[in-house]
Design a protein around this nucleic acid. Sequence first.
DNA 1: AACGCGGGGGA
DNA 2: TCCCCAGCGTT
Length: 357
Amino acid sequence: MNKLAIREEVGQKLLEWYEANKRDLPWRRTRDPYAIWVSEVMLQQTRVETVIPYWERFLERFPTIEALADAPESDVLKLWEGLGYYSRVRNLQKAAQVVKERHHGIVPDTLDEMRALPGVGPYTAGAVQSIAYDLDVPAVDGNVFRVLSRLFLIEEDIMKPKTRKTFEDLAEFLIPSGRAASFNQALMELGARICIPKNPRCGTCPVQGPCKAYAEGVQEELPVKEKKKPPRPVDMTAALVRSGDAVLIRRRPDTGLLAGLWEFPGGERMEGETLEDSLVTHLRESLGITVQPLHLFAQVEHTFSHLHWNMRVFECDLLTGEVRVSEDVRWVALHDLETYAFPVAHQKIVKQLGGLI
DNA sequence: AACGCGGGGGA
DNA sequence: TCCCCAGCGTT
């Protein structure tokens, strides 16, 4: 079969399947480009079921571009707490400020203008432009990589940057004219529900017929992907410093891991250092205070994609008379901790503190 | 091109 | 418990 005939068949079969099988997701009930944009950013590395409640709360609290642009960053992070990859929402807010100031609060309706916004790459730009503005542009996410690699038996490593153009060109070629919104979502929906990573449901797949990987029986071997290395183990310390009903917390720096979130002060143990010495040094250097670790309060394990924290939390005496509080260092009553955005690793500590209230 | 960046679900 | 899921920015 020639290329144009396959394009015809895949387009028709996928659109038909999608119309009959698409899930009723909240962001599919709106045409608001901003609301769709928020959903795409949340969905970047997070599954649908997780995103739904976050999206509802976020749109309720920040219903417009302007509301998001004008909000305190701490409020924005609090609504993102637990979703991970916090730079996503910091960039989203920066982008909202650009849209407010330079685009009259209207999400731009061209690929190039959208791509120029912070946090907007080829996928997000394509998804928003096609879904919200009906532009015939591709939106290639991990699902689409998987579906197309199987459908056309493409064995290039999808993790390699140069491979992206191959898939984008193919995805664009396949778009039935004027139907990018449904077609792009159909490809992703197929990847999420039928053409899944393990044990794909080829028996109920609408494009089993033209699928080259299925014909060869190699669907389980695709897509080809380089293995990533295991998380690096890191010994962490954290201090539980109490004063009456309050505990000492600080805000993490504006860049790097967990930027802008709050935590119990501490840090990475250096080689050859004891946990206690490490903790004392960290608090002296970052907060200018001297503490005496008393006893182990909790041990928390947390795995990131690239790190594994083994965090020991010590209850400490404060030897310094006074702590210089600031924008980033605060005494907070136990029952007020919930108003601050913490990484999940530190939420585990907060949870254990709950027993003390 | 290589690396940093979180967290959750399913087998 | 182990293994899997990946877009974007920075360097």
